[in-house]
Simulated scan of single mutants.
Amino acid sequence: ETLLDLYCGTGTIGLSMAAQAKRVIGVEVVPSAVEDARKNAERNHITNAEFFCMDAAEAASMLRQRGEYPDVVILDPPRKGCSGELLRTVVQMSPKRIVYVSCDPATLARDLRILADLHYIPQELTPVDMFPRTAHVETVVLLSKGEVDSKKIRVEFSLEDMDMSEFQDGATYPQIKEYVLEHTGLKVSNLYISQIKRKCGIGVGKNYNLPKSEDSRQPQCPQEKEKAIREAFKYFGMI
């Protein structure tokens, strides 16, 4: 079977399945990760895998236009989940199975609802507690195409008691700090992030990091850190 691995990172998931696949296609937007994925394939003597450095939605659309129809699609998005455009493009490829690896139950619930409306129904769901003693959980869901039989399948999600504040602006401050540090080696403060949020017209809360008095002076974010923070905003879909 042909396997399409979207948000493939350094290729770990797709490469682990290469021995059971006819062909593996990996897609990742971070250039250094794509380079590492290709090196990982070479080091493990895997010759049936290729990797593209592209946005997942653009790559899925490009592959569909090329007539690529994968049998299995793996989705492993960041916490913000998948866009509706991407999910619709994947469904248009008519894969036999979709495997969704999620790091947040809230966006997973949203995307499973979209996929269910497009006739891809959850068959198995396994939560994985990769971060003990925290509120975070990974979830792996197997979906296949079919009609819902309400007598056999009933899936309910309640988001009322979940803290959704961290999704309002696309990413939390710690996530932005981690991204900037990983990709540039720079450390940025909450103050700098809030300053650039304001420049981009993103809400930061009523009194977040405001000076205590009109005479107070705050350090301004250096240009190189502003550039790095803006790149993080783009990655998380905030701008």
Rank of each mutant, 00 (worst) to 15 (best):
L4G: 04
D5Q: 08
D5L: 01
L6Y: 04
C8M: 08
C8R: 07
G9D: 02
G9E: 05
G11L: 03
G11T: 03
G11M: 01
T12K: 08
T12A: 10
T12G: 08
G14C: 08
G14R: 10
L15N: 14
M17W: 06
A18E: 07
A19S: 14
A19G: 12
A21C: 10
K22W: 08
K22V: 13
R23H: 14
V24T: 06
I25L: 15
V27P: 05
V27L: 11
E28R: 02
E28C: 04
V29C: 07
V29P: 08
V29A: 13
V30K: 03
V30H: 02
P31W: 09
P31A: 08
S32D: 03
S32W: 04
A33I: 07
D36H: 06
D36N: 08
A37C: 09
A37Q: 11
A41D: 10
R43D: 15
N44R: 13
H45I: 09
I46E: 14
I46W: 12
I46S: 14
I46A: 13
T47H: 11
T47K: 09
N48T: 10
N48A: 09
E50D: 11
F51V: 06
F52I: 04
F52P: 02
F52E: 02
F52Q: 05
C53G: 04
M54W: 13
D55Q: 01
A56C: 05
A56N: 06
E58C: 00
A60C: 05
M62V: 14
M62Q: 15
L63G: 04
L63W: 03
L63M: 03
Q65A: 14
Q65G: 13
R66S: 14
E68F: 15
P70D: 11
P70G: 12
D71V: 15
D71W: 15
V72Y: 11
V73F: 15
I74M: 07
I74E: 02
L75E: 10
L75D: 11
D76F: 05
K80T: 07
K80E: 13
K80I: 07
G81L: 00
C82P: 03
C82Q: 06
C82F: 03
S83K: 04
S83H: 05
S83Q: 05
S83L: 03
G84D: 10
E85M: 13
E85L: 12
L87Y: 02
L87T: 01
R88C: 06
T89N: 03
T89W: 00
T89H: 03
V90C: 01
V90Q: 02
V90A: 01
V91H: 00
V91D: 00
V91T: 00
Q92P: 00
S94K: 10
K96N: 09
K96A: 11
R97V: 15
I98K: 00
I98R: 00
I98H: 00
I98G: 00
V99K: 06
V101A: 12
S102P: 05
S102I: 09
D104W: 06
D104Q: 12
D104G: 06
D104N: 12
D104V: 04
D104P: 04
P105I: 12
A106F: 14
A106K: 15
T107N: 15
L108V: 10
L108F: 11
L108E: 12
A109I: 08
